[in-house]
């Protein structure tokens, strides 16, 4: 059983992808209150590439295409090549990035160096080296059939998972998500009770039957949107309240769509 799990994990790039995504989430989550030009720091493409490549462990390799895809621009594989070509930082193991047809794809310190480094990390078998050096003759000679991991893996490694994060589950668009506290009972049948906390996403389109935050005459309220015969109503979820019809001359706006209710038991 251990064998199977191990091969699964060895798919080139899988591990790197996971760590990278986790980091990206962390980046979004840790928000401290500073003025924005100090706070918002949008990583350049170059920085993204460096960050990804830095995380490729010894004994594994990614293709230029994969790196580009992780950085969010799948077609920018040539740019990845150019960026890595300018890299002389020993902390960034750019030799672990190869072409997707299995060939080397160049190295700014000479291709021989790249082979040497990959061999040190047990990625290239000596028998393959000839083919690599005469690359032009044998254009498609794979560097690795499957990656070779060195060292004994920790048995627990396969079972480590991230702790569950409610933010990740409930907030899809952090930039457009706000919290609202409700008081009142007009939405009791929709499961929204007095003093509950609502998660509101403004980026979602307020379509039929969605529970929304509406602004009527400057006041916030929570209701369900319902379209009946071309007329739009704000429906309460409580028999004791009346539906509100939205007419042209009314001062009414939909502020956001409620996605989750947090209720203390």
């Amino acid at each position: 059983m251990h064998e199977i799990a191990r091969t699964k994990m060895c798919l080139p790039g899988e591990e790197v992808r996971q760590t990278y995504q986790k980091d990206k989430l962390d980046e979004i989550k840790t928000k401290n209150v500073r003025l924005p030009w100090e706070q918002v720091r949008i990583a350049t493409f170059r920085e993204k590439i460096h960050k990804i490549v830095r995380k490729i462990p010894a004994g594994q390799a990614l293709t230029y295409k994969q790196v580009a895809a992780f950085a969010g621009k799948p077609r920018a594989f040539r740019a990845v090549g150019n960026i890595l070509n300018q890299n002389y930082d020993p902390d960034i193991p750019c030799h672990r990035v190869v072409k997707s047809d299995g060939t080397l794809g160049g190295y700014n310190r000479g291709e021989a160096q790249k082979i040497k480094k990959l061999r040190q990390e047990a990625m290239v078998l000596p028998s393959q080296e000839d083919g690599l050096q005469n690359r032009k003759k044998f254009a498609k000679c794979p560097v690795f059939q499957s990656t070779v991991s060195a060292g004994f893996p920790s048995p627990a490694e396969d079972f480590i998972e991230e702790t569950l994060d409610l933010n990740e589950k409930c907030i899809k668009h952090p930039a457009a998500t706000f919290f609202v506290r409700v008081s009142g009972s007009s939405m009791i049948n929709a499961g929204i009770k007095n003093n509950d906390l609502l998660i509101v996403d403004r980026s979602i389109e307020p379509s039929n039957n969605k529970v929304v935050i509406a602004v009527i005459n400057g006041d916030f309220t929570v209701k369900r949107v319902e379209k009946i015969n071309e007329k739009v109503f704000l429906m309460p979820e409580n028999k004791n309240f009346k539906p509100i019809e939205i007419t042209e001359d009314m001062d009414c706006k939909i502020w956001g769509v409620v996605t989750h209710v947090i209720h203390s038991v």
Partner: peptide
């Protein structure tokens, strides 16, 4: 701030 979020009367 949690104690300063928007309040909606419903």
């Amino acid at each position: 701030r949690w104690n300063e979020i928007i309040e909606a009367k419903i």
